[in-house]
Computed example of a mutant assay.
Amino acid sequence: MRISAAQRTENENRIRAAMDRLLRGEIPPGGKCDIKTLAREADVDRTAFYGTRPYAHLRAEFERRLQALQQAGDIPDPRQAQITRLKAENAKLRERLAASEQAIDELTDFRTQALARLAAQHEEIVHLRQTATAASRVTRLPSSRSSATVIGSCS
Rank of each mutant, 00 (worst) to 15 (best):
A99F: 09
K32L: 13
S144L: 04
D74W: 08
T84W: 04
L115R: 11
G51C: 04
E12I: 00
S4L: 09
A135F: 12
R40M: 11
R16L: 11
Q80W: 10
L115Q: 15
A48Q: 03
T108C: 01
N11M: 12
L115Y: 05
I104M: 10
T37W: 06
A120I: 06
A81M: 04
R8V: 07
E41H: 05
L86K: 13
Q130I: 11
D109A: 09
E95M: 08
A56P: 01
H57S: 10
A39F: 02
Q67M: 00
G30N: 00
R14C: 03
A56I: 00
A18C: 03
A134K: 10
Q71S: 13
T47N: 11
T47I: 07
R24N: 01
S136Q: 13
A60I: 00
D109F: 07
K87I: 08
A39D: 03
Q113D: 05
P78C: 04
E124C: 15
R65V: 06
I125P: 14
L69I: 02
V44Y: 01
I27R: 10
G73Y: 08
D105K: 11
G30M: 03
R94K: 11
E63T: 09
A48R: 13
L128P: 02
I27M: 06
I75C: 03
L58H: 05
T52R: 11
K92L: 14
R137Q: 07
A68K: 07
I125D: 15
A81C: 04
Q71T: 13
E63M: 09
R21K: 09
R129Y: 13
I3A: 05
L69M: 10
P28T: 08
I3S: 09
T9I: 08
L69G: 04
I125V: 11
T112Q: 15
L93I: 12
E89Q: 14
R16F: 01
R2E: 15
P78Y: 06
E106Q: 14
R94F: 01
A6S: 15
A99P: 00
A120H: 08
R46I: 12
T52E: 12
D105F: 12
F110S: 02
A48Y: 02
C33T: 07
E41Y: 07
A132S: 13
A72K: 04
L118I: 15
P29T: 09
R137T: 02
E123R: 15
R137S: 07
V150C: 03
L22I: 00
I125C: 15
A18S: 01
A114F: 15
R24F: 01
Q67W: 03
L115W: 09
E106P: 08
A120L: 11
A68V: 12
K32G: 15
Q102R: 14
E12D: 02
R79Q: 09
T84E: 07
P76M: 08
L22H: 05
I83R: 09
L115H: 07
I104W: 01
R53A: 09
R14G: 00
T108I: 00
R85F: 12
V138R: 05
K32Q: 13
L22N: 03
V44R: 04
Q82L: 12
D74F: 10
R40A: 14
Q7H: 10
A72I: 03
S153W: 02
A99E: 14
A135C: 14
R85S: 11
E63S: 05
S147R: 15
G51H: 10
F110H: 11
K32E: 13
R59A: 10
D109Q: 14
D34Y: 06
I15L: 05
